[in-house]
């Protein structure tokens, strides 16, 4: 038992897999944080990730380039986000129901489009991202192979987390986003366009959700499978809360959930006598446990979930 446990946790492979599984969660949670900081809940994250997964797969299929695929995936996520923005900002409708509706619609629509275009034959394997070792950094013992021998999307996410932390805390625009999420009326009275800021943050969230979806299609499986995001969009919602709406903390929380997924897969592979179904349930159990343990300590943006209507 202890031998297998040590095999589980002290191998480079395991740690590298944790980072690989964590980064889609990290990029999606950065998007969700930016959106929620401006006061808009985006439950539709899962649907936007699915749109991104299919969009990037189709982009890579037709343009034969993973980077162009990534752009298509991000655009697909942004289009779905724009619908959410219109419904909850312009129409001031319920944010949670709109997100839930988009999740249901995208689960269906991605299936519909994929089947209509590719039929039910063999899944096409498309142009995808391969791991790239970063010169010098990848030579650092342990940390090198764990963090710096990954697909380029992972490095993009490192930059994204740092950029988002600086953007929210240290730039004028970031402070405007916070003002809109804390007290939209006050922000409005000093000339900040509440709707404009919220449209931009929601669409930014869609772009990043599309990027998160691209991890699954172009980073892991190199094709599209219905529902391939498997509820990670919902795990991100919990990540954002336990991270107290901070991008860097969200990245750390994402690492923990990435490790949980890697543990689940390891348990399956090592065949240590734990049924695989329970191993697959582990990330969701951990999410729930951490959420129960830590959620009470976080403070959400004051105007979160509330529509702002000008008098």
């Amino acid at each position: 038992m202890w031998v297998t446990l040590s095999q589980l946790f002290f191998s480079i492979d395991f740690l590298a897999a944790s980072v690989r599984f964590a980064m889609p969660l990290a990029s999606a949670s950065v998007g969700e944080i930016i959106s929620e900081r401006s006061g808009i809940v985006n439950i539709g994250l899962e649907g936007m990730m699915l749109a991104g997964a299919l969009g990037s797969m189709m982009g890579a299929y037709y343009l034969d380039d993973p980077w162009l695929g990534l752009l298509c995936g991000m655009a697909a996520g942004a289009i779905v986000a724009a619908i959410h923005a219109f419904v909850v900002i312009t129409l001031a409708a319920d944010q949670v129901v709109s997100g839930a509706a988009l999740n249901i619609a995208m689960l269906g629509l991605t299936n519909f489009i994929y089947r209509a275009v590719y039929g039910i034959e063999e899944r096409p394997i498309v142009a995808h991202f391969e791991p790239v070792a970063v010169p010098v950094l990848s030579k650092i013992p342990v940390l090198g192979p764990v963090f710096f021998n990954q697909i380029p999307l992972v490095y993009l996410t490192y930059g994204l987390v740092i950029a988002a932390a600086i953007f929210i805390g240290r730039t004028r625009w970031g402070l405007e986003v916070q003002a809109v999420g804390e007290h939209p009326r006050a922000a409005d009275s000093v000339g900040i366009g509440v709707s404009r800021v919220r449209y931009l943050t929601v669409i930014a969230c869609g772009l990043l959700a599309g990027m998160a979806g691209t991890f699954f299609s172009l980073g892991q499986l190199h094709t599209f499978i219905e529902g391939m995001t498997g509820g990670r969009g919902f795990i991100v919602l919990a990540v954002v809360i336990v991270a107290n709406w901070s991008p860097t903390r969200a990245a750390l929380a994402a690492l923990m959930f990435g490790a949980a997924e890697a543990v689940g897969l390891r348990i399956q592979a090592l065949n240590v006598g734990i049924p695989y179904q329970l191993a697959l349930a582990f990330p969701y159990l951990l999410t729930l446990a951490v959420y129960i343990g830590l959620a009470g300590r976080s403070r959400m943006p004051r105007a979160l979930g509330m529509a702002y209507v000008k008098d």
């Binding site: 509706a101 988009l102 999740n103 249901i104 619609a105 995208m106 689960l107 269906g108 629509l109 991605t110 299936n111 519909f112 489009i113 994929y114 089947r115 219905e226």
Partner: peptide, 8 residues
């Protein structure tokens, strides 16, 4: 998928 699309 048309069924879920219509529901959403």
């Amino acid at each position: 998928g048309i069924a879920l699309s219509l529901q959403g």
